[in-house]
Design a protein around this nucleic acid. Sequence first.
DNA 1: ACGAGCGCTTACAACGTTGTAGAAACCAGT
DNA 2: ACTGGTTTCTACAACGTTGTAAGCGCTCGT
Lengths: 334, 334
Amino acid sequence: MRHRLKDVAERAGVSVKTVSNVVNGYQHVRADTRARVEEAIAALNYRPNLSARNLRKGRTGVIALAVPELDIPYFAELARHVVTAAADQGWTVLIDQTGGGSEQERKAASGIGDHMIDGLILSPLALSADDLAALAGLPMVLLGERVDHGPADHVMIDNVAAAREVTAHLIGLGRRRIAAIGSQRTPEGASARLRLAGYTAALAEAGIAYDDRLVAPAPAWHRADGAAAVRNLVTSGVRPDAVFCFNDTLALGALRALHEMGLRVPEDVAVAGFDDIEDGRFSIPTLTTVAPDKERIARLAVELLAGRLGPDRDSPPRELVAPHHLALRESAPL
Amino acid sequence: MRHRLKDVAERAGVSVKTVSNVVNGYQHVRADTRARVEEAIAALNYRPNLSARNLRKGRTGVIALAVPELDIPYFAELARHVVTAAADQGWTVLIDQTGGGSEQERKAASGIGDHMIDGLILSPLALSADDLAALAGLPMVLLGERVDHGPADHVMIDNVAAAREVTAHLIGLGRRRIAAIGSQRTPEGASARLRLAGYTAALAEAGIAYDDRLVAPAPAWHRADGAAAVRNLVTSGVRPDAVFCFNDTLALGALRALHEMGLRVPEDVAVAGFDDIEDGRFSIPTLTTVAPDKERIARLAVELLAGRLGPDRDSPPRELVAPHHLALRESAPL
DNA sequence: ACGAGCGCTTACAACGTTGTAGAAACCAGT
DNA sequence: ACTGGTTTCTACAACGTTGTAAGCGCTCGT
């Protein structure tokens, strides 16, 4: 059923290597020989055995993408773009779910299918720069905010600026009691820290006093956490007139909780998120959010990895910043 | 930097095969030999080369999951469960995005990374049973409704029953003008056909006349399609008092469109979906839906595939039906 | 017609691993 | 010490591919 070069060679009456040459597009093969070989390949439905090829070449043509959770829309959308960008390089993407745990992430980084993958695009939550440095084995590109100036290539957006812009937009709407949802004190909370920094910067610029009762922590960034945070804020008597959620799923949860408590969005409370996931374009109301250029992020990551596997093998780590913009929708309109 | 069995063997003063035996947990290795080898493995940070192992064993420990689109929440959630279930078997999952195109699906089925994967879990949209039969090369498990009694193992839920139940629920709420959104006449529309059949069956049981103006096609099953279908229905003067959407993203789009047109859910129009995606638990209003047991579907698929790779290699194709239930929420409450 | 040169093809070895078969070492029990 | 059996270890070959280097045969210029 499954044939090898040898079978094709016998059928075409040539050597194994000649078939290999045809398969690999080697130039110096006589036209009629090539035709005969190709006929045999077609007849036997020959497919190269990649394990063998990899063993020989030391390359697999497979890269891994490791994200915390696949069913978080942001990562799913990102994954789609990475798969597409990788296809342009002729790569297949093996997707790994780390669950955000450091052990899982370490496992991913130290070589999922050891030698099965040529490189890794990792979106780390739990691992620190030091952890990662210890895992230098595999060519790696990091996504997101976790590790700045780490030991590996790195693609991110300017979180502080983005958070500042979206907060300034809420201020521009005349809101003064702006809550921030999603703060985290753990070392994992690098994104949270940056976005919080942007938030406070915008407040400072507008001369609004920082009130830490308006800053709500969220252990994870799921819808349920956003909803819980809003309920806490409102029932504890802090009356925000706007909410900046550190990602869109938090914001969708917040919308839900506000609705349940009879508060109107945006009239009573304006809401803004971060990530621009598809859901936010159809929620009720639609969601104002920071829109990172995911397609660009994915493409940059893949290109950086391609560099690492090729000419830039030993160049110093690079940090690339992808653009973002504000998507103004109903929850905090223009 | 990267070491081989041979390096470990030299350091431990044993043969290559003994190291291999230690790595593979072979029983008959003297305790002190084993200790010496393990010390050497640790010292050199040895990792087996999977390409070589695969070449030798003919197995890769990698299976592929091919779905139409990763950023459709249903598939993302399913993917998460498949990855988890596969991990229990010691497998890694390579995720492939077919985009629902027949060419892509064929490519996936005929061997993504030829010889790189041991088996395939495919959620086909475009391929027919005949197409698939031609691709018998790879052990395969199909998900969903596309191909009944096809040439491969198959996991699904009882779509007709589920659609009948949810429609009956809407009827039970006193609704009589129940729209169905998502019908498709193309061969790709197998799920659509089954769900439509359940819908009509429920109408018939309740003695409600079928009105084909209430049945709206949807080219794809995205939020935008659901929104467009509802707008069409309402502006064309058909006044439904309930809408059964053939999946949840359609339903979320429908909620949005109804909201935009000033219709209240569920008071004016009740809405039900299909899939029980996370979004539907936080939408405004929350979404009544058919909840397939995704975790079970994933586990069954992985187990079937494990069978195919093992003892049941040549047993006839099996069809397994996973359970589902109705999740009653605000959009069409009890 | 002959050798140089080139185009085309091939044999061989190697990539790192494991299955097979058998050798060597060990352990009683006589 | 010797046998028979078991445990522990090893040499060798093979998985399917491609790089190397060399071989063959053709063309062409003289």
